[in-house]
């Protein structure tokens, strides 16, 4: 009976990957920082930390959705840049905001359609879309500048009842992510599709009667929309447009998702793992900043972490 309850506990949970590893490291890191620095645990600093982590958390949730089905979205960084550039256009908010989400959904649709219907490898499709999207962002806004509508800024900065708006963002985004990934039939179908891909039985999910093509396209739309949400948040923080602001997010989000225990081959992963992965990444940057480490070296270290994490995951397929 002991093994039964063990299985009960770890059954569905073991599909969620090694999410507790980043949690553990985060906790240990936070304890060390609390002990060795004066104001790490202050509400002010924690709130700052959360708002630093917020964009990466949002993008990583979207990234995770496509990674669970065995795909990847390298256009998310470009979408963030485009979103800020669009929001900094000279137009009223009620035009800009819907336009942003419509355009980014369309980008996701292009990604998904190229992958599913036109048989293009996800990495190649999203990589080339990334160039196109960044190109448009640079045409709209060649250098950082401009200003976004006030309503965007007030959606992000400031407090309500003394609680920073970022906290509300966190709650809403996590609820949304939970609903999509763990709290709906759609989420389970994503895991089913990914499980089929990673175990070499690509048709399995389809044979269960799941409309895999539509679900995959929808996943890329989701990841594009989450990236747009992150772009919206960043635009509100910097209150201007910046065509280069999203550059590092494509790889950083993949790193965060991978650190969070999600298998890049698909089918295994969890929202909380992704959350802890993203927080760990930001904590690391924070720690490296406190240690006065050069920004360039920080980039190299993040690259090394990505390499380490992905090479620890096993995969059958060789190549792309």
């Amino acid at each position: 009976m002991a093994t039964q309850s063990f299985k009960t506990y770890f059954g569905r949970n073991s599909r969620q990957g090694l999410w507790y590893v980043p949690l553990l490291i985060t906790v240990v890191g936070a304890v060390i920082l609390t002990v060795y620095t004066d104001d790490f645990a202050s509400p002010q600093n924690l709130s700052n930390l959360l708002s630093q982590a917020m964009p990466l958390i949002i993008v990583a949730i979207g990234q995770m959705i496509v990674i669970v089905i065995g795909g990847m979205d390298l256009s998310v960084g470009a979408i963030i840049s485009l979103t800020t550039a669009l929001l900094a256009l000279d137009a009223p908010a009620f035009v800009l905001v819907p336009a942003v989400f419509a355009i980014t959904a369309l980008i996701g649709l292009v990604n998904g359609y190229s992958i599913v219907k036109l048989n293009v490898h996800p990495i190649i499709a999203t990589l080339s879309v990334q160039f196109i999207v960044v190109g448009f962002a640079r045409i709209l806004r060649p250098v950082a500048g401009g200003s976004v509508p006030d309503i965007v800024v007030s959606c992000v900065a400031g407090t309500v009842f003394g609680i920073p708006l970022t906290v509300f963002w966190a709650v809403i985004v996590l609820l949304l992510g939970w609903k999509l990934i763990h709290g709906s039939r759609y989420g389970l179908h994503l895991f089913a599709i990914g499980g089929g891909v990673s175990s070499g039985q690509e048709d399995a999910a389809h044979n269960f009667g799941i409309s895999d093509q539509r679900n995959v396209i929808l996943a890329y739309v989701c990841s594009a929309l989450f990236a747009a949400l992150a772009g919206f948040y960043i635009a509100g923080r910097i209150s201007s447009g910046d065509p280069g602001v999203g550059e590092t997010f494509a790889l950083d989000s993949v790193t965060a998702v991978a650190i969070g225990g999600t298998q890049l081959s698909g089918g295994i992963g969890s929202l909380h793992g992704t959350l802890f992965g993203a927080i760990l990444m930001v904590l690391l940057s924070n720690g490296m900043n406190l240690a006065n480490l050069s920004a360039f070296l920080q980039g190299a270290i993040k690259g090394a972490i990505l390499l380490l994490v992905v090479s620890l995951q096993s995969r059958k397929k060789m190549g792309l």
């Binding site: 089913a192 499980g195 799941i210």
Partner: peptide
């Protein structure tokens, strides 16, 4: 043709 990363119940009711 069961999906290995899903639980028994999830496989039983999938779709």
């Amino acid at each position: 043709s069961l999906l290995p990363n899903l639980t028994i119940a999830e496989n039983m009711f999938l779709g």
